[in-house]
Design a protein around this nucleic acid. Structure first.
Lengths: 353, 353
DNA sequence: CTGTTAGCGCTTTCAA
DNA sequence: TTGAAAGCGCTAACAG
């Protein structure tokens, strides 16, 4: 009675506690835990066991996760952090999350959405909320951008996994598309069609490892095929279509000659195609184009981009698996880089030279 | 020393506790709380205060949210539940979430992603994880589908807010587009262009209140304009384009005559347009079309749909605000239905009859 | 087999 | 002005 008398205007039907179950089942609270948690050691007779289970059901009892977390030190919560973007949710993020969700949900882990804060993206989730592991979506590539909290977590062997950009070498897990390989492949598609003057419009290669890898894959393809790298053909963009459009416009104004473009992503390719057409060129007759990822596919386009489709769901799933494994393991696992295979999508944006 | 000796192979740099701060600052643990929480009553002298703050900074101390939650009863966590869908994340969900995030984040509330489970979508978040409030995305409309947990929460005056479909009348808050008004408007656009035989391809009106409201808005528009409702013109779909396509195909095979279509959403409209063209009809010359929401706008379409664009970000934000207000308030607030205004988008899919 | 006990880290009276 | 102590609900030894 007395304990219900906190002066609150909300009169809530009290959520059943362990004690309530114990009283109803005529046992002590710890026995309730023993039974409901299926604790291995002690053997509770079936009669008692059943009494407790019935009581729990009757009261709709579910153990308070907060109290449990306090004593076990595990919150059964995975932090998901989106680095350095204003909006924490965007389209591919959904499918990464779906993949991760699919592995965590069955294990009773829940996803807590991170700070989304440039200042302290990790501190809160790790130190305050006590998440059991962390999934970092597109963290910054360069070491100096990786904050002290990350450093602290790494030294603590805290389970974490990066997606979409790797951390410093050999630190934590990393799951992504093989951006190097994909870029190399998509460049080679153009080379195989006879192209030699291939422009590459990059992503933000200084801040994002996927953009860097794609750039390197492009270069490698040229090298292996005896094509000299011409810096005037490399235009440093940032994955946004409008930026890519401007860069291409600039290059064309400069009179740079090229017969093909490998665009770092679909949006860049899309805007490039728009611009080329605006300037009276035909795709692929005059300029062939490949890229990575597809334009949003629910809507019809009047071209079919030759591209490499990332498996974002698969990446999220794999990342979840690695992270879960790391969380489950008592040992400190070595860092793992893991590439999830995507799909080559053929189309009509390549024309033999 | 002894307390570090738990047999774990992970040697973590210990996260600083309140006690550590207290020792470093030469005060008692409770004084640390007093200072760091800015507790109103006691006046700690500035010297002590500063010593504590310095110590906290030096150790990177941040209060353990789990322990705090256990004693305060507030987890500073908002549960977000996606009802009855396999994948908890999808495109519009992102923008709802972004809106909600924008209000919760500054108040230190974090978002915990819900069960996504048809069995017990609410129980875990509410009873186990102890979230302070719940945002329900597209919950089922019909009372019998609203589970017992929801009933329990309602009786407990637990703060919750539905988005995208309302709960039973006058229970909890509800934020959405004014689907009735929007549907009425989009139907009237067709009527104003002289159309009288207007087909409506609905959403899942039995399970989703937005679909139901749109259907009613359509009917109301006809009524107010003296047009008799012809049941053969109402085709009961489920918001998916393919379903809409089949229904339209069926209707046309039956020889139903119509000069316009009000589609319940953009996907339905899109597939309808595709089908009409396939069957040799021109949009809008032969059939005019309006809908609600726009097709994915980053890609070019060869039509511009006359439609009503929902403000999903705004809806999420408003829902967050109502929920936060409810959480903050000691009193039990009355239920509120709140409509967030969208935008009429003109296009070229209406042709005067 | 089951109950008692000692915390997990914190907030919050209440004393000193 | 500060510290001591109780307790949030639970787990996990350890007794009995």
């Amino acid at each position: 009675m007395a304990e219900q008398d906190k002066p609150s205007k909300r009169v809530q039907p009290r959520i059943a506690r362990r004690k309530d179950v114990a009283e109803l089942a005529q046992v002590s609270p710890s026995t309730v835990s023993l039974v409901l948690n299926n604790t291995p050691g002690p053997r509770i007779p079936d009669a008692t066991r059943q009494r407790i289970i019935d009581a729990a059901n009757q009261l709709g009892y579910q153990p308070n996760a907060v109290a449990r977390a306090l004593v076990t030190g595990k919150t059964m919560t995975i932090g998901v952090v989106f680095h350095y973007i204003g909006n924490p949710f965007y389209d591919t993020a959904s499918s990464w999350l779906n993949g991760a969700w699919s592995v965590f949900h069955p294990h009773e882990y829940r996803i807590l959405l991170g700070e989304g804060d440039e200042e302290k993206p990790l501190a809160g989730l790790y130190r305050q909320r006590g998440v059991d592991g962390m999934l970092m979506l597109v963290p910054p590539t360069s070491p100096e951008d990786q904050d002290k909290e990350l450093q602290f977590m790494i030294e603590a062997d805290f389970p974490c996994c990066a997606i979409g950009a790797r951390l410093k070498a050999d630190i934590g897990d990393y799951v992504d598309t093989d951006n190097f390989g994909a870029a190399k492949m998509m460049t080679e598609k153009l080379i195989q069609a006879g192209h030699k003057r291939i422009m590459h419009i990059t992503g933000p290669h200084l801040f994002n490892s996927s953009a860097m890898d794609r750039l390197n894959g492009y270069k490698q393809a040229l090298k292996e095929n005896g094509i000299e790298i011409d810096e005037s053909l490399i235009r440093y963009g940032n994955y946004t279509g409008t930026m890519g459009e401007d860069l291409l416009n600039e290059a064309m104004d400069e009179g740079v000659k090229f017969t093909a473009i490998f665009a770092a992503n679909a949006s860049t390719a899309h805007f490039a195609i728009k611009l080329l057409r605006k300037r009276g060129l035909d795709v692929p007759k005059d300029v062939s184009i490949t890229a990575i990822d597809r334009p949003y596919q629910n809507e019809p386009l009047d071209y079919e981009l030759v591209t490499y489709q990332q498996d974002t769901y698969g990446i999220g799933k794999k990342a979840g698996e690695l992270l879960l494994e790391r969380i489950m393991s008592d040992e400190v696992l070595p860092s793992r880089n893991c590439y999830v295979e995507g799909t080559f999508i053929d189309g009509n944006t390549i024309h033999p030279v």
